[in-house]
Design a protein around this nucleic acid. Structure first.
Lengths: 206, 206
DNA sequence: ACGATATTGTGAAATTCTTCTCTGAAGGGT
DNA sequence: ACCCTTCAGAGAAGAATTTCACAATATCGT
């Protein structure tokens, strides 16, 4: 069944599967089934099988899936079997929290360049290097061939920053600013907006 | 068309519409159209009209929507025309960043109780009050009648914390831990997992 | 060796979600 | 007044996604 274009919504579930498989592997479990995975993730087992079938056959009838094999295969499919460099734009409270967060580098995502517009902030150290002025963004990101970025600037500045990133040939943006970014179709954007999540839930709290 | 159950996916878009309308209102614009909103949000205009039609009729043919009226209506639908109290569990790096973040309270979400398991952390002040021990969670959250919570503890502790929250009658959880929570169907959970977003995007960076 | 049980991969069916298209209404210009 | 343009709402059509159901196959115990 491999070959045709895989729906975006399926790609979105692969990291979740990966998470569960990593958990099982750490617990020392050797085999699992679509049913067990479904239970862990509160998802139907048929959906998991269907999703995986887009990429090939990874299981064995009667036995299920070998945990570490399936984990490695999904890692490969997602291209997370290698490390990625990230640019971080915005070193305010949020940006600092992101830079400080250990969860990225443990999964192979390394923040290798940080930018800010505030002269007070430029020059501060953030681990490896120092915060650079946002005016140098295009040159630095291009030269370092960074293809992913995190936007953590105020909403009013987010589109400008995004335009710079695109000029620097960045292809994927994780945006923390509460605004929909306008990007060409070859650039991918993901949004993180905790307030939107909360507002969605209050609907159900009648 | 109001009456039938509104799809969850539609509810999920309302906060986005609200964001755009607030922006337009702040810019002083009085009227807008589904077409303009669609352009701002990179969404089809038909989808916006269809979504809104689940709740009633808010626009005028030929004229479009009155920005502040539609904003108020969506606020009302989402129940964000009032304030909400939140409990925050976990006061590590992430929890502190969340507690410190101004974006919640400016939208009416107030963190009114904070819990942690670490004796070093318990007792620290976080603005209004002090961090409490997680053992007091059930009692405090029940007494304060808090119905929403943010989970910002390590993955290994997240399910336990969640169970306590549910016992305390919390109905909505915003979970930052990279694990799928098991909850009864009357409890709503939203997930924030930046790594999963990045992993999804690397798929496209072949 | 064989029956009982578990579990995948998949075509088909069912459901959900999005987009199209058209009707009717509102407003502006002449 | 009348025409022209704009635009919401909604039914119908189309597309996408999820779920069902089953044949095929692997393992285990006897």
């Amino acid at each position: 069944m491999a070959g045709a274009e895989v729906p975006d919504i399926v790609i979105g579930r692969l990291p979740i599967y990966l998470r569960a498989l990593t958990l099982l592997a750490e617990a020392g479990q050797e085999f699992t089934s679509s049913q067990e995975l479904g239970q862990i993730l509160s998802i139907g087992s048929a959906q998991i099988r269907k999703d995986l079938s887009h990429f090939g056959e990874f299981g064995k009838q009667g036995t299920g899936y070998e945990v570490s094999y399936l984990r490695d295969q999904i890692s490969r499919i997602l291209h997370v079997d290698r490390d990625w460099s990230l640019a971080l734009v915005g070193f305010g409270d949020l940006g600092q929290a992101i830079a400080h967060y250990g969860g990225f580098s443990s999964k192979g995502f390394h923040i290798t360049a940080v930018f800010d517009a505030d002269p007070e902030v430029v020059g501060q150290s953030f681990g490896d290097g120092a915060v650079r002025h946002v005016d140098t963004l295009k040159e630095v990101v291009s030269d370092m061939r960074i293809r992913m970025a995190i936007v953590a600037v105020p909403a009013a500045a987010a589109q400008d920053v995004t335009d710079m990133l695109i000029e620097a040939d960045v292809k994927a943006i994780l945006n923390y600013a509460p605004i929909t970014l306008s990007v060409p179709s070859h650039v991918h954007v993901q949004y993180i907006d905790p307030v939107a999540h909360l507002q969605k839930m209050t609907y159900y709290l009648a």
